[in-house]
């Protein structure tokens, strides 16, 4: 059982030594694979599959934080990501002379700050409700945003949206180059993953999980549970905004279609498909989703590829409500039981 004392130093070893000791072989293998992945694949696989998985995984990770640890299923995470993308275009400028043309080191933090602030406001509104009502309110926020950007030409350029959005040079490194962009996405996704994992055992994360399990008891311990939930929305909004920034750079454009109901629901599907109990779940879900999104169409045609995604989603959720992570746990538990069973059968 995990505890607040996990990762707490019991010896005088350095942090690095502890970190190295706690690394499992599969972590090392996964990190090595992620690092060499763009070197063994081509441009399409690097960006369309690799980078897109990391980007959608990061946005879904923000939902995992809210739903898995906080018990709040929000359908507006892609809206927040989309707002960050729109603000990058509005502040930084897009093709056709649109936008304010601020330098990237001002436009990008401002865009992320606006999206995080918006997420906090969504939190303030939605934490007054629970369960299905939270889903409905956040869906309403998403739909309202979609129709607003569709009709507003002054700020959001209405139906046309913005195009020609490319990542800036960072310390002289060209982020538009496929491998560099992939590693940038990997760094952001890795940061998000480690942050959420670390927070799960920090007082904030521990309290968030306790609020999910028993809000009344948390109030009786002196916690302001509404404030805690709003803070979770702000943090999740920050992660979604980082994902939105990468998404707009990958696509090179943003329009109302990018924040419509279909992509909104996709984030929920990704999170549930992978599993919302652990921060790795959204990335697994994103990988399955991206592969299906790219290849199902070639297998059975453009009309029915959504049916394939839907069927696979149904099958996984039917067998394991906790997504692929749940399936993996079931498989692991069965493997662990098997040697014990065989010893028992021999004894009989």
């Amino acid at each position: 059982m995990a505890s607040v004392l996990d990762e707490t130093p019991r010896t005088n070893d350095g942090t690095l030594a502890r970190l190295v000791r706690s690394l499992r072989w599969y972590y090392v293998a996964m990190i090595a694979f992620l690092l060499i992945y763009p070197l063994i694949t081509g441009g399409f696989w690097t960006v369309q599959i690799g980078a897109q998985t990391l980007i959608l995984g990061t946005i879904a990770l923000s939902l995992m934080l809210l739903a898995g640890y906080g018990g709040m299923v929000s359908l507006s995470q892609l809206t927040i990501a989309g707002l960050a993308g729109y603000m990058i275009a509005v502040f930084g400028g897009a093709s056709g002379g649109l936008g304010l043309g601020w330098p990237p080191f001002v436009a990008i933090p401002m865009a992320i700050a606006v999206a995080t602030l918006f997420a906090t406001l969504v939190g303030v509104i939605s934490v007054r409700t629970e369960g299905i009502y939270t889903i409905m309110i956040t869906l309403a926020v998403g739909m309202a945003f979609y129709f607003f950007v569709l009709q507003n030409r002054e700020i959001f350029n209405a139906f046309d949206g913005f195009a020609g959005l490319r990542p800036p040079l960072v310390l002289g490194i060209n982020m538009r180059e496929a491998n560099n962009f992939y590693f940038f996405c990997l760094a952001i996704a890795g940061f998000g993953y480690c942050l959420v994992l670390y927070l799960s055992r920090a007082p904030f994360g521990l309290a968030l999980q306790a609020v999910r399990d028993n809000p009344r008891r948390m109030r009786a311990l002196g916690f302001n549970i509404q404030a805690h939930r709003v803070a979770a929305h702000a943090l999740a909004g920050f992660l979604a905004a980082l994902g939105g920034m990468l998404l707009v750079w990958m696509n090179g454009q943003i329009s109302p279609g990018s924040v419509g109901i279909a992509p909104l629901i996709s984030i929920l599907i990704i999170a549930i498909l992978g599993g919302i109990r652990h921060p790795v779940g959204p990335f697994i879900g994103a990988l399955i989703f991206v592969l299906l999104d790219n290849f199902a169409m070639q297998l059975i045609g453009g009309d029915r590829f959504n049916t394939v995604i839907g069927l696979i989603f149904l099958v996984i959720v039917l067998f394991s409500p906790d997504g692929v992570l749940g399936l993996w746990k079931m498989f692991r538990n069965r493997l662990r039981r098997q040697p014990q069973d065989s010893v028992e059968s021999r004894t009989e």
Binding site: T8, P9, R10, M218, H228
Partner: peptide, 19 residues
């Protein structure tokens, strides 16, 4: 730990507690 933290500072702390 939560019972103690609930009535002291650091309810929103992002840092894991030290020994």
């Amino acid at each position: 730990f939560l019972a103690v933290r609930g009535v002291s500072r650091g309810r929103f702390s992002f840092l894991r507690p030290t020994r």
